[in-house]
Design a protein around this nucleic acid. Sequence first.
RNA 1: GACCCCGUAGCUCAGGGGAUAGAGCGGCCGCCUCCUAAGCGGCAGGUCGAUGGUUCGAAUCCAUCCGGGGUCGCCA
Length: 581
Amino acid sequence: MNLFNDIRALVIRSLEDMAAEGTLPAGLDLSAVAVEPPRDAAHGDMATNAAMVLAKPAGMQPRAIAEALAARLLADSRVTLAEVAGPGFLNLRLAPGVWQGLVGAVLTAGAGYGRSTLGAGQKVNVEFVSANPTGPMHVGHVRGAVFGDALAALLGFAGYDVTREYYINDGGAQVDVLARSAYERYREAHGLEPEIREGLYPGDYLIPVGEALKAKYGASLLDKPETDWLVPVREFATTAMMAMIREDLATLGVRMDVYSSEKALYGTGRIEAAIDRLRGMGLIYEGVLEPPKGKVPDDWEPREQTLFRSTAHGDDVDRPVKKSDGAWTYFAPDIAYHWDKVERGFDQLIDVLGADHGGYVKRMKAVVTALSNGRVPLDVKLIQLVKLFKNGEPFKMSKRAGTFVTLRDVVEQAGAEVTRFVMLTRKNDAALDFDFDKVLEQSKDNPVFYVQYAHARVCSVLRKAREAGIACDDATLAAADLARLDHPAELELIRRLAEWPRLIEIAARGHEPHRVAFYLYDLASDLHGHWNRGNEETSLRFVQEGEVETSQAKIALARAVAVVISAGLGILGVTPAEEMR
RNA sequence: GACCCCGUAGCUCAGGGGAUAGAGCGGCCGCCUCCUAAGCGGCAGGUCGAUGGUUCGAAUCCAUCCGGGGUCGCCA
């Protein structure tokens, strides 16, 4: 149920009819024809740009097209007014019954209102978080986790078949560092002084891992060379870290469908196979890179490496897949991993990465383009920094000192739901200020509270109505005499509800879950405004003393608002509040 | 030096090529005998960083500059 799509379909059909009867030339491209809410509500309910878009290709005056189109649209019972305005807009007014009927449709569809078939069941893989398994998740990971999870939910709502996936970076040098760090804690568990050298992970979170190693291995790993204990300790520690990370994610309300391991790609021949495939395309060669201009690293010296010709697909320089010592770079298993995703049949890949990985985007896109023969698009969403504040003062964190702010710190202080909502009140590529005090403030300055309050107000109305003996289940409300919703303020609120399915499609197409948060804020604002109008105009209050049928119609509207807020919060991973106390 | 992101009201930010560019905060003025005033309404505040270009139409797309941030072979 998307009224804008319905009316657009009507416009398109009318244009095709006009072409068939010769009013318009045949074979026009109608893809740019749009039906949108006008900027100014005084212009009408909906506006189409058809006449302006088609004027040139049709070789006609915009006005002539608009007028002919208007005449046709008026033949439809839903359209009550169609007038040409401005440079050639066709402004439409719809019959009140169309809007009133929407309230019933929302209540009938319930949580499904706004669901779209846009995705047409296409398989989309959203890879997000992918934090190194070397410690607990910190605040920097939180935003990516929330963003990825909400994006996945949004795409699911828009009709895509979504897989949430975590790529475990358990194959590189950092997990060896983890193993050495854990080994020191193991020694500590045996009463020895741990040597947390420069470069090791100093965090306390490894102390229980050391204890657990002692419980499992006793003293058998003490005084052994690293070559003896590195592999088992690494295995043990990464498993422990991943268990911790899964718990962290659960704390935030994030659940992955698939965990993929980098390490599992080694020794299977899949990295080699992926590189060979690229080699077969002429995209792998041995060569020496130019030193970067401007800022040359101190220890730069030209070396021959195995390179991927990413410049063939839009990158700026070719990228090494092997280090000078012959080992794979991080890039190589990632190539194999993305190939694996392509092979698993995904129609679209999305990687959610920290903004500091921006330099990685072009080569990754080049890989996916090459390995899928251009079939699979990869969209990389870069997540900007979160700056923490407390009482307006910057909140410092330092990973090196082991005193970084963890995901759990954030969730314990702010709560998972508040954290999720606030993290989505900015576009992914804009930095975000997160103030522990502000996000918990119970006032309209706090968008989480503001939206929750709107939902709670509707719940309050329903409680009052039930106390007054008015039946308020959704089925009854949907069948109410909705024609009684004839006040301009009521119709305005309904128009906002009508935008919800459209908003979903726009947000899904752009991979922009923040739009949902902004929409909910606007909807909540409309509800609060309407509520207060009831102070002066008592006929606008939802519960009308002694008038059951009118009350039911008005309550149906309130309930429809709550249904949409609830659905929107659901996408963001937030539970709607029944009351604010 | 190259690449990526950002630049919109005093501040924080929205704005899928459309009409007179919006919201919140801050400032000023109002609204509770009344379903939650934890709220609402109004006023003031803009050369959309700059200059060109594409277009019937540009904050939006392209180019070039300016300013801020990030990244830049053998880390992941």
